[in-house]
Design a protein around this nucleic acid. Sequence first.
DNA 1: TAGTTTACCTAGACATTCTAGGTATGTCAA
DNA 2: TTGACATACCTAGAATGTCTAGGTAAACTA
Lengths: 113, 113
Amino acid sequence: MKKQSIDHAQLLVLSLLAGEDMYGYQIIVELARRSDHTFEMKEGTLYPVLHGLERAGAVEAYQQEAPTGRMRKYYHITRKGTELLKTEEESWRSYSGAVNAVLRSSIGGLTLA
Amino acid sequence: MKKQSIDHAQLLVLSLLAGEDMYGYQIIVELARRSDHTFEMKEGTLYPVLHGLERAGAVEAYQQEAPTGRMRKYYHITRKGTELLKTEEESWRSYSGAVNAVLRSSIGGLTLA
DNA sequence: TAGTTTACCTAGACATTCTAGGTATGTCAA
DNA sequence: TTGACATACCTAGAATGTCTAGGTAAACTA
């Protein structure tokens, strides 16, 4: 049966990583920026998602020193992750399309008055 | 802080009821039909949602006999429910717009090749 | 040097949806 | 007429996804 809900955190993270390698903190900041602060993903949400994606082979992690001297843990999307992203994007399109279809179908009862 | 996810069952149910009064089973069937079977809401999801909406004063229930002689429990959306629907629709638009914005922003890394 | 930001992490709580069951009536085919 | 299927309502408990609320530590900044 079709999935009824979207694992939206996973979709968004994969989508960002498809653009460029990022580290956790950066993902949170970028997500807020690109969504005009609609998404303010919590660390308690993000890190488990990243670790899950890593376990699933969708991303790979590597350490890299920041200009500041601190170590950062960057994530790189794999081919497997790109496939996963494609199917999740498709799920999202189908899901959001269906919601919009239902909303449109009820407009008659709303404010045609 | 803004809600990070949509209570999609509630939004969809309210949206249907904004069009016309419906009974539970009908909501499930209509939802499947109007979403081209993307949504196949389970009874275990629907009934708790309906009861919650009733407790919240967003819908009112009444019994009515079907042509078959069976009793059906119809739900009617209240003014309060219509307000709720408006805010949830707005949440949905903002949420789906944000997802699309993030997806678009990463296209560069995807398949421009 | 104290506070804020950066940067990583986890356990447990909470919310939403599903699974899997229950009850009962109506319809239709074998 | 009986057995299967659709209709129609319901709930308890499991599973899933996200958040709260903590911990650790380095770097910047006032």
